[in-house]
Design a protein around this nucleic acid. Structure first.
Length: 259
DNA sequence: CGTGTTGTTCAGTT
DNA sequence: TAACTGAACAACAC
């Protein structure tokens, strides 16, 4: 599930429920998901501190606690759940932050992703420093700069977190479909008119998805039909195509996305 | 019992 | 070197 808009939803959830609360303890039912520290080290770094205003970069959620930061990545199946009381733990609750007023639970079925501890800005950069600029708010010139000199297709550039941070498989397909750009089109051959469309549709898709706090599957969107067997283009009704692009299952319209 | 899956990383290749 | 591809990771649903 988690792409930029999903993580933005988690960020708002965090800001609403966990921010400002004191950390009383951390329960770590699955220590392997705590990727760069032992539970004891995490506790000694953050217990007694209050969570501050959370930040997001790409698909990473960054939660300050005192001078340390907790970095969360959600893989394919992660999510953040607030529980006002200490009710029974869910099977996939991997790391549970016990706060004044409730529990914040990092839940993740497939155990891709995880939680990292950064005790300083430097340690934070060691984890998220290789990311490109966040896709949200990227201006047209910056986008052009990001994809300049790429040798492969545009979709592979959009998915590469070192190029642009935050877009996943669904958002990338959605943006390319709306901009009428074929996912296999070489990134280096995208110029003025298509580049302008790419930028404005990226902005529009991200704004709308962020309002929902997730990637919406709604009418008029590719996401609304991409799960169907013989889906048709919501715009022109042509039969959608499905294939592997940049190593991922991609859906596009052979009529709308010729160029 | 295969196949597919919203993400990242690593080894190997171009 | 830069950047691409495919396998691996993991745990399910269908």
């Amino acid at each position: 599930m988690p792409e930029l808009s999903d993580v933005e939803g988690f960020r708002r959830h965090f800001a609403r429920y966990a921010k400002g609360h004191r950390i009383k303890g951390v329960d770590v039912p699955d220590p392997t998901l705590l990727r760069n520290a032992r539970p004891r080290a995490l506790r000694s770094a953050i217990v007694g501190k209050r969570f501050g205003e959370p930040d997001r970069h790409g698909k990473w959620l960054i939660a300050p606690a005192g001078r340390a930061r907790v970095l969360l990545h959600f893989g394919m199946t992660g999510l953040l759940v607030w529980s006002g009381d200490a009710r029974e733990r869910h099977r996939y609750d991997r790391i549970v932050f016990e706060l004044t007023g409730g529990q914040l639970r990092y839940r993740n079925m497939r155990r891709l992703g995880g939680v990292w501890l950064a005790r300083s800005e430097k340690e934070c950069q060691e984890v998220v420093g290789s990311l490109g600029p966040d896709a949200l708010g990227l201006d047209a010139d910056a986008l052009a700069e990001c994809i300049r000199g790429r040798r492969g297709g545009i979709k592979s550039a959009l998915l590469d977190q070192r190029v642009i941070a935050g877009l996943g498989n669904l958002l990338s397909d959605e943006i390319l479909w709306r901009a009428r750009i074929n996912p296999r089109k070489p990134a280096s051959r995208i110029r003025s008119p298509a580049l302008t469309r790419l930028h404005s549709e990226m902005e529009a898709v991200l704004q709308e998805a962020n309002r929902h706090g997730r990637v919406p599957g709604k009418p008029g969107w590719l996401t609304g039909v991409r799960g169907e067997g013989d889906a048709r283009c919501p715009r022109c009704r042509a039969r959608l195509r499905r294939g592997t692009v940049a190593g991922r299952t991609s859906v596009w319209c052979p009529r709308c996305q010729r160029g």
